[in-house]
């Protein structure tokens, strides 16, 4: 009984790690970016997460600034906050590689990427990997990343997880 309780509690702790809770409580780069060059909205109709991400992308392709606003569960807000922390300073092609790796790792699909992408170190984004044990929450964790992808491609439509 004790062991079962401990391992179950561990699973929850994996999902709601201190870093996740910290970013959910105090999201970084939260707000609207008034001089954004790229933006996209992400909607998760299942739980009502609604995030808008803003990016200022320079002519050389470098992401100079990133912000987000909206509301969502702890996982989706923390993911968006971590995203903004991570992509500032990257160029868009690296950010897209990062997007592809994050989305496949969140699904627990570690072998999906090869070559250059296989070598990408997710750094603190790894904190989101606890969602693998919670299939219904993978969408929450990947929502902001889909919005990043959409913003870089300048898709005008809101992305939805459904």
């Amino acid at each position: 009984m004790k062991d079962k309780d401990t391992s179950k509690a561990d699973e929850l702790r994996e999902l709601y790690r201190e870093l996740i809770l910290d970013h959910a409580r105090s999201p970084r780069h939260f707000g609207k970016l008034t001089d954004a060059t790229h933006s996209a909205e992400g909607i998760n109709p299942l739980c009502g997460d609604k995030l808008k991400l803003y990016f200022r992308i320079l002519e050389n392709g470098q992401i100079d600034a990133a912000c987000f606003e909206g509301s969502g569960c702890a996982i989706s807000v923390a993911s968006a906050s971590l995203l903004t922390d991570t992509v500032i300073g990257m160029n868009t092609s690296d950010a897209l590689d990062f997007f592809a790796v994050v989305v496949s790792r969140l699904r627990g699909d570690v072998d999906a990427n090869n070559g250059k992408r296989a070598a990408i170190d997710l750094g603190k984004i790894r904190a989101l990997e606890g969602v693998k044990e919670f299939p219904s929450r993978v969408k929450c964790a990947s929502l902001a990343w889909h919005a990043l992808n959409s913003a870089i491609h300048q898709d005008s439509q809101a992305v939805s997880t459904e």
């Binding site: 699973e11 929850l12 739980c47 009502g48 929450c140």
Partner: peptide, 22 residues
């Protein structure tokens, strides 16, 4: 200020099924 979806996940993990959302 815990989002309902987070409540739903933690409850489900303890075998308790509720509805969360709109």
């Amino acid at each position: 200020d815990i989002h309902p979806h987070d409540i739903g996940t933690i409850l489900d993990h303890q075998g308790v099924a509720i509805r969360t959302g709109h």
